[in-house]
Design a protein around this nucleic acid. Structure first.
Lengths: 193, 193
DNA sequence: TTAGTATTGTAATGATTACTACAAAAGTAA
DNA sequence: TTACTTTTGTAGTAATCATTACAATACTAA
């Protein structure tokens, strides 16, 4: 290995950038904001992430894709994926107020980037669709096993859940309140009883 | 009346600005964009709307409040408000692709403006809450009349519907498809049967 | 040491931002 | 006409934007 050693780990830079993007979105986050938050100068950021601000944002989305993969693995190793899914949704209510106000960076990006940046919009959209596909798979398997009694097609229920995901991430901004959210989530999860 | 006559009607300026804001959001819409779209120079826009870009955006939200009031009047004059509400939701599916991709300017604003502009966030948030309050009133009245059989508290069902409103406005971006949307809307409306 | 290499922070770049100063334009009232 | 008023488009303003040029830095390899 040659050259001056890295002072920042790429992962940490992306994580700190992601926090800013998650709160303020892409357009309202300036490179000066990112430089301050990460502690890395503009030169460093551009040397590390060749695509600049946009690449940094892409990496922030990719981190969410890894989170999705982690959840997929949890589902594969579980003997009750539906319970896992329900626990995931119910757990949202226990997050702190800041997390409620942030919502979901993927859903936020779809809203912000439509008509603004096709690439970022498409990547976020794909992430939502892949999440939906996971929901659908979980439901289909559970219907075969008889764990879910609803006769509604699995893909319809999958779309129902991704709709709910986007919806609850708006509701928690309006009502960052544990009890209200718990009640709403429990109510909506009845659909996959 | 004195002075040089207006060449643009305020209403039309707001409407054209609203179309841009609705598509691209607040931050990604520049004053130069607004000037081109409205046909009015920057000087004219600032002379007409003293608060500049932000005031123009506020007026765009106010127009949506007027739309809410119009819907409130429809409800008051209707002998079956629940049918009106269901028709409103089902009608979303029939919109064109552009409208699907735009979503709801109010819900979009809540997402974009949290942590960015408290005032605009608060105004959009209030608009969503007022919409929710209308849903709740419609449901409460229908429960009294026996039109809705669900014993779920009216305010819980109201929150359910505003969650669905935000959710469906994300789903229609992913699937700007009449049939898929019709099915999802019909499914979710079963909750207020 | 010495040469080579990659990262760092700073300072500049040119473009774009929201906004404003201002004079010309276009009307009314006397 | 003349005086007055308001709107209009243009040409600025200062600030901020994303990006880059570059020299100093800090390491490895020889």
């Amino acid at each position: 290995m040659k050259g001056r050693p890295n002072i920042h780990r790429d992962e940490e830079l992306v994580h700190k950038a992601q926090q800013l993007f998650w709160e303020r979105g892409y357009s309202a986050t300036s490179l000066s904001d990112l430089s301050k938050a990460t502690g890395a100068g503009a030169g460093s950021l551009y040397n590390t992430f060749k695509g600049g601000k946009k690449e940094l944002f892409r990496r922030s989305l990719q981190e969410r894709r890894e989170a999705l993969h982690a959840f997929e693995r949890d589902v594969e190793n579980s003997d009750n994926p539906v319970a896992l899914l329900k626990a995931f949704f119910l757990g949202i209510a226990d997050a702190d107020t800041e997390a409620h106000l942030r919502g979901c960076i993927v859903a936020n990006t779809v809203v912000e980037m439509t008509f603004v940046d096709r690439e970022l919009e498409a990547e976020a959209m794909q992430l939502l669709q892949d999440t939906e596909a996971l929901y659908t798979t979980i439901i289909r398997d559970a219907q075969k096993k008889g764990t879910i009694k609803s006769r509604q097609p699995a893909d319809v229920l999958g779309k129902y859940l991704i709709t709910f995901w986007c919806g609850i991430n708006s509701l928690r901004r309006i009502y960052p309140d544990r009890d209200i959210l718990k009640q709403q989530i429990a109510l909506q999860l009845q659909m996959i009883d």
